[in-house]
Structures are given as structure tokens and as C-alpha cells.
Measured scan of single mutants.
Amino acid sequence: MISLIAALAVDRVIGMENAMPWNLPADLAWFKRNTLNKPVIMGRHTWESIGRPLPGRKNIILSSQPGTDDRVTWVKSVDEAIAACGDVPEIMVIGGGRVYEQFLPKAQKLYLTHIDAEVEGDTHFPDYEPDDWESVFSEFHDADAQNSHSYCFEILERR
């Protein structure tokens, strides 16, 4: 099963200049909980913004210009990325925008964090048809001392 995991502000903004323009430790914990011990696929820009392999996960970098870091697996196509994951129950696609666009048609599940923030962004989550998805989990949280904005975790499964 292919799943996408993303944090989205208003207007589906997911990033600005290779960074997330908010401070939500709870979302980072949600991300870790849902990706640990699963292969993660990301684009080169996302890889560069993280700066290191995510521990406890097979890191697969999709790029037309593969790098030389041998701590991760470099691939040039969506099919190659899927094959590099091996026989696993769930593959997690973690961004960025172009990689989400490439995998959305193949995805069966979306793990979304909806952030109540209007922020400037240069990267967006692809538009998706809500009628194609069923919400199977939703959990709202107010902003607090650690988390700069209110947010809602949601899991959607393709109908």
C-alpha cells in the first residue's frame, strides 16, 4: 500500500524555501509514529532540507540527478522507488510537492495534518478530489505552549 503523509496549511501550503513555516512538535511526533519502520520516499529537495537519513526507516530518494550519499537509496523513477521498498505492507511518501503529485494517483491512504495557519509558501500539496477519499480518523488539537497553531490529524482512505 502506498501512503502519503503531509502537513498542510491553508491553501495546501506545505513548504517555503525548503522548510515548513510553522513550529508543531506534535506533528513531528505524528510523522515519526506513522513512518517508523517503514520505507520513506522523498525528493532530493526534501532530502536536502532534512540533511540526514531518517533513523529507523529505509530512505529512498527520487531524483533525476541521483546523489552520492550511500546512506540512502537513490532512484530515478516512481517504479524504481516502489521496487526499492521491497515487499512491505506500507510505503510512506513524505514529499515534496512534485513527489506527492507523482504518487497521489497510486496512493491508497493519506495521513494529513491540517494546520490552521495562513502562511506564504512556494510548495503545495497537490489538489485531490475529496469525494474519492473517506475520512477514517480525525483528531483536532488547539494551539498550545509547544505548538504554534491549532491542527487536525486526519487519515483518508481511497474509496
Rank of each mutant, 00 (worst) to 15 (best):
A6M: 06
L8W: 04
A9I: 07
A9F: 03
D11F: 02
R12N: 15
V13H: 02
M16G: 02
M16Q: 06
P21F: 00
P21A: 07
P25W: 06
P25V: 04
A26N: 03
A26Q: 04
A26P: 06
L28R: 00
A29E: 11
F31L: 05
F31T: 01
K32Y: 05
R33V: 11
N34A: 06
L36Y: 11
L36W: 07
N37T: 07
N37V: 09
E48Q: 15
S49Q: 02
S49L: 01
S49A: 12
I50A: 03
R52E: 12
R52P: 07
R52I: 14
P55E: 11
R57W: 00
R57K: 01
K58D: 10
I60M: 09
L62G: 02
S63P: 02
S64C: 14
S64T: 12
Q65L: 13
P66D: 08
G67T: 15
G67D: 15
T68N: 13
D69G: 13
D69Q: 07
D70C: 14
T73R: 15
W74M: 10
W74L: 06
W74S: 05
W74N: 04
W74T: 11
S77Y: 14
D79P: 13
D79R: 11
E80L: 09
A81G: 05
A81S: 03
I82Y: 05
A83C: 08
A84G: 05
A84S: 09
C85H: 04
V88G: 10
P89W: 13
E90R: 00
E90T: 01
I91G: 12
I91Q: 04
M92G: 01
V93I: 06
G97P: 00
R98P: 01
F103A: 06
P105M: 09
P105D: 08
K106C: 13
Q108L: 08
Q108A: 09
Q108T: 10
K109H: 11
D116I: 15
A117F: 02
E118V: 09
E120H: 13
G121A: 02
G121N: 00
G121E: 00
D122P: 00
T123R: 11
F125L: 07
F125W: 09
D127P: 12
Y128V: 06
P130K: 12
D131T: 05
D132R: 11
E134K: 10
F137T: 10
S138G: 05
F140R: 14
D142N: 09
A143G: 07
A143C: 07
D144K: 04
A145V: 07
A145N: 09
S148G: 01
S150Q: 04
S150H: 06
Y151T: 10
C152G: 12
E154H: 13
I155C: 04
I155E: 04
E157P: 02
E157V: 08
R158K: 08
R159H: 09
